[in-house]
Computed example of a mutant assay.
Amino acid sequence: MYLFLLVLTITTAAGFQGWRTLFNNFSVEVVGINGQQMGILQSIREIPGFLALLVIYLLFLISEHRLAALSVIFLGVGVGLTGLLPSFAGLIFTTLLMSFGFHYYETLNQSLTLQYFDYSTAPIVLGRLRAVYSATNIAIGVVIFILAKFLNYTQMFICMGGLVVVGGLWAIIQDPSDKNLPVQHKKMILRSRYWLFYALTFMAGARRQIFMAFAVFLLVKRFNFTVQEVTVLFIINNVLNYFASPLIGKAINRFGERKVLSLEYLALIFIFLTYAFTESKWVAGIMYILDFIFFNFSIAIKSYFQKIAHPKDIGPSMAVGFTINHIVAVIVPVVGGILWMTDYRIPFFMGAGMSIVSLILVQFIKNGAMVP
């Protein structure tokens, strides 16, 4: 299972990082979208995450590992078609297709990891997979930086998408499953004792959308970052995260989820406020790098849930968690995009406020369990 998830993580990283690196510049330079349209696109991108709950019912028809492989294939097709449909409507269609693949794979990836690895091993595995994800992002960033001089956007999207499809086709004929593991519930699971996991997941989804929808858009729209400069930032991010992600997993085991998440949310308050007030291109770029690093601390939410969850609840709960994560995520980019048109700083004030709420919530975690 580790090898299976490793290959699909590399494949998914290649596709999503390639798409994300090119998307903002392609949208602005070729399609010519504005801030409000970007907000709409980012909200549409999160609809499949909101519908991640449907994964539970798809498992009646197909096994978890094969659905994971099929999801990666959808991701690749969506990425490959992006450059072929250079219009706002085209971006809506390809973003939806890509996003269904990405979000469904991420749901199943988390489920399989928490099922197949124990309490102390799971944070390490999650950290290692994040490190491999980052290493792949570095490679893709270097490739795009070079290819941008020779290929147009359409050709680069096709190359990235084709690579992902090949990885998904390999995975769909593999069988890494263990028949001795507890059979997962194939129904929606909502339990009151998981309330803190739901609340932290909800806030993380809302806050993350500020980062995903507006951080790079800020760099491109306000500070005129080129596609090469955005790619350099991605490479720096992933070099740092290659080394940092395994350390985060170890830190969770050593210090506990409460301290790790508290550090994340304190840092994010500062980062979002700096986004709002800085006039420096390079300060904004540094904040983006820090933002990217602290994003990986969110694996502590998953390891916390593993410690309080019944083993049979993990699969459906990951699907429910993804849906909860995307309830506000569908709304935030649209609202943020409208507010951006009034003052670009407002979405980042929203992000700081969300981080404060998360910081308060995380104080209810104590030694991997909720405070009585």
Rank of each mutant, 00 (worst) to 15 (best):
P347R: 12
A122V: 13
I144R: 01
I44M: 11
L96C: 05
S99Q: 07
L67R: 12
G83K: 00
V227M: 10
Y133R: 10
L75Y: 08
F117L: 15
G15W: 14
V125G: 00
L70T: 15
I124G: 05
A89W: 05
A69L: 07
I124Q: 09
F297T: 11
M354K: 06
F50L: 09
F150D: 04
V332G: 00
G205Y: 02
Q209F: 07
V230E: 02
G167D: 10
I324N: 09
I346N: 02
D118M: 11
N224L: 14
L247S: 10
N152V: 06
Q42G: 05
F217L: 13
I173Y: 15
G285S: 07
I189K: 02
N25H: 14
M354F: 07
M212I: 07
E46G: 01
W282N: 06
Y153S: 00
P123K: 12
F255P: 05
G321T: 07
V7N: 08
L190M: 10
R222S: 08
M1F: 06
K366L: 13
A139D: 00
Q110V: 15
V283R: 06
D175T: 08
P311K: 01
E64P: 10
D178K: 13
K281Q: 08
W340V: 03
A309V: 08
F223G: 00
Q115K: 11
G18L: 03
I314G: 00
A199H: 11
F202M: 09
Y242R: 05
S177N: 11
T136A: 08
A213S: 14
K302P: 10
F93K: 04
V7K: 13
N34W: 12
L108G: 00
L53S: 01
R345K: 09
F100D: 14
D118P: 13
A52G: 06
F297E: 05
Y242P: 02
L290H: 07
F292C: 05
Y242G: 04
V220F: 08
V143P: 01
I138L: 13
M203L: 04
I236R: 09
L61N: 12
L8Y: 02
F295V: 04
L58F: 15
F150E: 08
L91A: 05
Q36N: 09
Y116A: 15
S262F: 11
G18N: 04
L266F: 13
L361V: 14
Y57W: 09
I138W: 12
P333G: 10
V77W: 08
A171D: 00
L190A: 07
W19R: 06
S63N: 13
S43V: 01
I158G: 03
Y304F: 15
Y105E: 12
F225P: 03
S262A: 15
L85E: 14
A244Y: 10
M188P: 08
A204Q: 10
L169R: 03
I172N: 00
I10R: 00
L112K: 00
P86F: 09
T11W: 14
A352E: 06
I140P: 01
L261C: 11
G39N: 04
T113G: 04
I33S: 04
P86I: 08
V334L: 11
H103Y: 13
A352C: 12
A69T: 12
F217Y: 15
F225N: 03
M203K: 03
V230F: 03
